[in-house]
Write a protein that binds this DNA or RNA. Structure first.
Lengths: 352, 352
DNA sequence: CTGAAAGCGCTTACAG
DNA sequence: CTGAAAGCGCTTACAG
């Protein structure tokens, strides 16, 4: 029985497997057997032990257990500096799977442009001995990170817009194709003067979205001239600046595709300030289908990235790798879908 | 020297303190001393050991270390089902302080209405042996949880709108006063028919915001009649429904205060659908100053909750408690501030 | 200034 | 079906 403090009846030290063994009158080996659901324990012994466990309110320490079996039961998520909403949703998916599988989730934020990025990550992995890692974009795209992971031999799955070498497994989101769908949608609505606000083009997600959009336009004989392209940084302010540029051109575009919903919100705001009707004078599309997409007026046509499902699938794979699944799991591709709302289409009767 | 696999030069097993001791020709005790920066190690010995550490690329295991010193170097954040953005920002603040202090962050999501809430939380704490806990609202408000924490004796700080008994330390956000500031602002602008969309009133945050708003109105002789109050759930849809109700009343309010920015966005959307000018026909205010507040058109007057700073302060306190600071740290109060934007005020010249 | 040994709380071949 | 003992990778009084 652990000692109790006088006043509060608080256990000074939590019960250990040894306490249970003593109270149940068996060896720790046998207690360990019931903890691990070994079948070879007598029915009576098991019940006695279970009673002792309940009485002592004993819970095995993950840490001691992990030290013994050389696993940590920890899964790490490595995340860069994306917007809080995206990270929040992804994490939600990750943690759901972790709980189901008996893992705890360790959060490790990094800064993508940090020169000590790989060093920091190696520290983290070695120090915490995570059993597996899920890497979110854009960290997931970094090839030095991928090489580090391979060297450390830690099961890791990266979520990115394109397969990255050296990952045991990847979850690839079809961003290029999705951006192409936006282009096709705008073309179909009759637009020919079409502009784009891209993300930071050194990120794969951003360059994929740009490529997909451009290629589809070009294959329809519509150019995406440099004057119609502005590079943003996925942030609202950069969207405002880009939109202000594009919407004051002599040859004003009739449609703008922003590489994420936040920058699309900025385009809407500038359009409003210039008294342009959306979608009458200007069609606007975004990317992500984040919460704000439907909150804006007009609601945003956008690409739905099922972030929570993506995160869940990535986590499942990471855990499978950690539990010894043969590595070389084929990459998993997730198709994204177009969601059409009022920002690109006047519904019958709405705007004659 | 750890064995290497033939093909990849991957260490099959990472170097341990024993490997370092052997290579440096000293005892593990001495290696442990340099790891813990004990001053009583000879200069030469230290250098030899440091060289061996570098050569083996050794990093001490947090887990083994923790087992020996009876600490885990883990801090847990317990979060309910708030919106992803709020959680994302709070977590960012928490993890910053953790990193500085040498703690890893473990995420434990719970469902506030789960009947097994306390049991689940006890499991988590005992299993992971976190050194400290930060609890976000609305889980932080739950008094059974608070009692559980006290019983377990785990250092925990709760973030809530009102002090909750049994927490070793709390971070209290002045939500009632803040809502009062919104009321004062609307009164000052001349509004008398003022309505409110509240959050779920069984949450302290929601009832505090309602109280603060109502009391300030009443002390100015302005009533907040039941017909002018709708209870939402902090979600967008509930805001739409509430706004649709309020804005079709015979005696339409001239101002609506929504208990968070998301529901305020819904009010803006409904106002727009009804062709009401904001702020000309209707003033709208929100709460949180989340990213969307400035993305909306018109930009939202709202209360700034400095979430990241709040999280940082809570985490600092949690760590202080874990490291043996006398408990009974006084609660920390954070004042919130009003941010006035276009949704309540026509700036000179904008709307004559 | 440095070392041999016990201990943190578990698991796991190996015996019986 | 059950137990004594060693080990996981660290730290820490206790000696010297």
């Amino acid at each position: 029985m652990p000692r109790m403090t006088e006043q509060f009846d608080v256990p000074v030290r939590a019960a250990t497997i040894t306490d249970v063994a003593r109270d149940a009158g068996v060896s720790v080996r046998t207690v360990s057997r019931v903890l691990n659901k070994s079948p070879k324990v007598g029915e009576d012994t098991r019940r006695t032990i279970e009673r002792a466990i309940a009485a002592l309110n004993f819970r095995p320490s993950l840490r001691a257990r992990g030290l013994a079996v050389r696993r940590s039961f920890l899964l790490g998520v490595v995340q860069g500096d994306q917007n809080a909403h995206v990270v929040g949703v992804l994490q939600h998916g990750i943690v759901e799977i972790c709980s189901e599988a008996g893992y705890e989730l360790l959060v490790h934020p990094v800064s993508v442009q940090d020169s000590r990025l790989t060093e920091d990550l190696e520290d983290f992995v070695r120090r915490t001995q995570v059993d597996a890692l899920v890497l979110l974009p854009p960290v997931s795209e970094n090839s030095s990170v991928a090489r580090l992971l391979a060297r450390l031999g830690v099961p890791a799955v990266g979520i990115a817009a394109v397969p990255v070498p050296n990952y045991p497994a990847m979850l690839v989101t079809g961003e290029r194709a999705a951006a192409g769908m936006v282009a096709a949608h705008l073309l179909e609505a009759g637009h020919r003067r079409i502009a784009m606000v891209t993300g930071p083009l050194h990120f794969l997600s951003a360059s994929e979205r740009e490529k997909g959009f451009r290629l589809t336009l070009e294959s329809a004989g519509v150019a995406l001239p440099p004057s119609y392209v502005r590079e943003g940084d996925y942030g609202f302010e950069s969207g405002l600046a880009a939109a202000a540029d594009l919407l004051t051109l002599a040859e004003r575009p009739t449609a703008i595709f922003a590489a994420n919903d936040i920058m699309a919100a900025a385009v809407l705001k500038v359009a409003r300030a210039l008294d342009l009707d959306v979608p009458g004078d200007l069609a606007v599309a975004g990317f992500d289908d984040s919460d704000i997409a439907s909150m804006l007026s007009p609601a945003l046509t956008t690409i739905r990235r099922p972030l929570r499902d993506i995160a869940r699938e990535a986590t499942r794979r990471a855990i499978a790798l950690a539990e010894g699944e043969v590595s070389g799991v084929p990459d998993h591709h997730v198709e994204l879908t177009l969601v059409v709302r009022q920002s690109t289409v006047s519904f019958a009767g709405a705007k004659p």
